[in-house]
Amino acid sequence: MVSLDKTTALLIIDYTNDFVADEGALTTGTPGQKLEDEILKLANSFIKNDNLVILPTDLHKKDEPFHPETKLFPPHNLKDSWGHELYGEIQNWYTQNADRDQVYYFDKNRYSAFVNTNLDNYLRTHKIDTLLLTGVCTDICILQTAISAYNLNYKIRIDQKAVASFDPIGHEWAISHFKNCLGAEIF
């Protein structure tokens, strides 16, 4: 199990039906589904130790004319849709823990959990300096969040059993990039 101190927060990024379920609009499928047990284990460990668990979650409106992803991907994680709900047992875990002070869910509208959000301020207020990144997609939202975190001087940790992508080559490239260009601890 991961050793924790109070300066480490867990981020569960974009673990939604649209990104993970078989019927999801932009699904990682089996690779994403295989993360569920590891993410739950980490989330429970963080809660038990009174550490922060943060769930930055992609949110879109259908056919947004000014959003760049509209041209790149099919509609996904639409407001008030099944696709935007957290996947499987992660949704149940969140429902059971949402009222805890150390659980923070927020919607985001860009790949990085830091862009257009208050995440950096929230983390600094809680004296966090290390982020354990989990979720999907390794080579898109996890990568962009890691780059933002690096540029803001956070230490980055990646549990390889808790990140996945629909692109295996992109996934492997991102893992290498985390280690070799961002100085992340990979385990």
Rank of each mutant, 00 (worst) to 15 (best):
M1F: 14
L4R: 01
T7R: 15
A9E: 04
A9D: 06
L10M: 10
L10T: 03
L11R: 02
L11K: 07
I12R: 00
I13E: 06
D14R: 04
F19S: 02
V20R: 05
E23L: 13
E23M: 11
A25I: 03
A25T: 10
T28C: 14
G29P: 04
G32M: 03
Q33V: 08
L35A: 04
D37L: 09
K41L: 12
L42E: 02
A43E: 01
A43V: 01
I47H: 12
I47T: 07
N51F: 07
V53L: 05
V53H: 01
V53Q: 00
V53R: 00
I54A: 01
P56F: 06
T57F: 10
T57V: 14
L59E: 15
H60E: 05
K61S: 15
K62H: 08
K62L: 12
D63K: 00
D63C: 00
F66T: 10
F66E: 11
H67M: 03
H67K: 03
L72T: 06
F73Q: 01
F73R: 07
P74L: 08
P74Q: 13
P75W: 08
P75K: 08
H76M: 05
N77R: 07
N77E: 11
N77T: 10
L78E: 10
L78P: 02
L78G: 02
K79Q: 14
D80W: 07
G83Y: 11
Y87N: 04
G88Y: 04
E89Y: 08
E89S: 12
N92P: 00
N92Q: 10
N97K: 08
N97Y: 03
A98N: 12
R100M: 10
R100E: 00
D101E: 15
Y104N: 09
F106Y: 14
F106I: 05
D107P: 06
K108T: 11
N109L: 04
R110V: 01
R110I: 01
S112R: 02
A113Q: 06
A113W: 04
F114I: 02
F114K: 00
F114R: 02
V115Y: 15
T117V: 12
N118G: 12
D120T: 08
T125M: 13
I128F: 06
T130G: 07
T130K: 14
L131R: 02
L132C: 03
L133A: 07
G135Q: 05
V136G: 01
D139R: 03
I140L: 15
I142E: 08
I147R: 06
N151F: 13
N151M: 09
N151G: 07
N151K: 15
N151Q: 14
L152N: 12
N153R: 12
Y154E: 04
Y154M: 10
K155A: 14
R157M: 15
Q160A: 12
Q160T: 15
Q160S: 14
A162Y: 01
A164G: 10
S165C: 08
S165K: 03
F166T: 03
D167A: 03
D167S: 05
I169N: 13
I169T: 14
I169K: 13
G170W: 11
G170I: 06
G170Q: 05
G170N: 02
H171I: 06
H171V: 04
E172P: 03
W173C: 06
A174V: 09
F178M: 14
N180K: 12
L182S: 04
G183H: 13
E185S: 12
